[in-house]
Amino acid sequence: MAAAEEGQPAPLATGGRGFVFVLPALLLFGLFVLLPIGSSFWLAFTRWNGFSPPEWVGTANFERAFRDTIHLRSYVHVTLYIMGTLVVEVMFGLVMAVLLNSDRRGFGLMRGLFFSPMVLSMTAAGVLWTFVLDYRLGLLNATLTALGLSELTRPWLAESSTALISIIFVSGWRFAGFYMIIFFAALRRIPRNIYEAATLDGAGPIRQFFTITLPLLRASMMTCVLLVVTGGFAGFDLFFTLTNGGPFHSTEVPATWIIRPR
């Protein structure tokens, strides 16, 4: 019996008619995803101004793209961005999931507040943080001045040395809550008696975290890393709103480079 339950159940219907259910999705997907991907690939080997017919030029575009140092540096920036967001989104999210994992009064609210930046649109978050990081009236510089650290104030987004790291932190502010929720959901699935047994064996909370929690969160961790990497490469909105690739291309990433007229 068990073997029969594990296998795929028998289909309700067979034959080509079942294709009808897939057709709407396939049409939509074929026209607006597959077709553009295909022509993207083909157009890469042509010279095309968008209006007159494309003209085959072989690998000339690739040679040009790989001689463009701004283009090449955009991959360095996006790699740094992804490594940074792994820390400020995934690691911070994990720490917060452990810290806020409690049934006590108040923790539900704190999880809700911690997650709330996720609901703001990326553009709203970007515009808001342009003000937080603003040189003259920015919240960050005002806080630093109020704490007597006025020598640390700077135009965060207008200096090449701090622009990328600022974007990474804004990204962390917005997405840490999302990863916190993924880890939180996974934490809830770990049976509590494992921890009780570990406590009886004399393992402290930190030891328990590294020997029980972390290994059992491996699957969620993989999901998160995958989401950060794929999402990071597609990252556009924050870069466009906060710096649009500047200053001096120090925050140029592939997505902002692609649509830049040249």
Binding site: V22, A25, L26, F29, L31, F32, V33, L34, L35, P36, I37, S39, S40, L43, G50, T230, F233, A234, F236, P254, A255, I258, I259
Partner: peptide, 24 residues
């Protein structure tokens, strides 16, 4: 085959097609 084809979108970011999609 169709199922796998439909999952391609998970691997590619939308900016890749921005310009051909504009033409289309």
């Amino acid at each position: 085959w169709v199922y796998r084809l439909l999952l391609i979108g998970l691997l590619l970011p939308p900016p890749v097609v921005a310009i051909p999609l504009f033409g289309l």
